[in-house]
Design a protein around this nucleic acid. Sequence first.
DNA 1: TTGGGG
Length: 478
Amino acid sequence: MEEAAARERKRPREGDAAPSAAAAAGAGKAQYVYLPVADALKAPGARVFLFAAVSEIGAAVRSRGTDFTLTLRVADQSRPAGISVTFFADNVALLPCVKASGDVISLHNVVITMHGEFFVTFNKKFSSFALFEGKVSTECSPYQTSTKYYGTQYDNELLTQMRTWLAYNPPGLKDLELQLRSLKSDTTFDLVCKVLHVYENNGEWIFYVWDGTDTPAAEFQAILDAEAVESSPLHLEGVPLPREVLCTMPCVGTVLRVFTNRYIKEVFHLQKNIYWARFCNITCKQEFGIWKGILGPSSRVRLLSHEDGSVVDRMNRIANQVHRQPMASLPGASNIADVEYEAAGYTTLMESLTHEQVTHKFKTLVRVVAAYPCRASELRLLLTGSYCLRLTLEDPTARIHAYVHKDDGAKFFGGFLTAEALIKKMNKLLGIPEEDEEGTPLTRNPPWIWCCVKSYRLDKNDPWGSRRYRIFGTEIRD
DNA sequence: TTGGGG
């Protein structure tokens, strides 16, 4: 009798709870109390009550049936790795709308299922939920509840416990999280970033993502494959971004292109709005010295709200950023170029690309990643003064082609040089190391140089299409 | 019914 009374006391007032669930949970167990997630897994098929923190927020999408569906990952102390919860509802507004990861969710009458691994299913007929803010607060009432949610006498106490646990175990902190500034090739990591643009073509998707930091400057093969150097691309995508999209890109920090040929269901939301997101289990590599993100079979995309801890952290860092110059060039750019255009302010390449006027002059800090021509035999032709040199300039925000006009060649190279001196200067510019006793080094690492560049147009009728860049007032020092 | 990561 007493046991039954105790059970009754602990049982939330949820009148329509099915008796079969109690039977499934085994005799004598008070099934209608909240269970630690790890314990709930011992009762697959049973309806259970869970009180957990939301660690990942999926996007609401239409199911293959008639409903809308949403997946959250929730965790508690008993299972910090968390478990996936699938919600169904015939209306998006009925799905949980989690404000930030780390918020707390109460789940009543959800069912544990096992399909290779454990899942939690929210059944729209008999399950209910409530969402609470995860940050420490005296506010204990939920900010969203489903219909049929009846709070229990344990809610407040569990909420306080969960908030305390969360304060020491923030859900955003993952050991495999990297920023763009610390990218590494061939490792799998998570990236918290703002998705600025999504491009689709024939089942291939490109996500343009940004976290306010600069990708590391690439090292190139030192043995000059002239063809590879001359054809060094300005960007990885086949079709360059249309100007109206380009102009929405930030002027500081790298916009990383993340490629996939898999359909990512969050893509709909990302195309419609600019979101912060967590790209999970992604990899990266360099192509032509440009970083490229890749979403593989095990990668996922999770939308994050602006209130999410990881996002707030990124935005604070961006707001506090003092250096607009490329991070990799700090503490000081090598002084191999001497710049006349003292009056001009510093401008990133993206700032120039998105400048509202075609024609303008600026001073920038860049690396020369490629040159055309670069073969010694052809470089000699520059000495005749009737050819121009095309340099591929790079900073963390963009690459451009900039021409050293034939009239500016002598100024740029610091006088009329012998062929040998010219080749030596070009090698220095491209970061090609001089041979030493050890033999030819394997990599070249172009130095950062200050450059004056002017932007102009060839055709009045097509100013943007015929836009060119030309280097002026810049001299390569010995 | 639908849908689903370690």
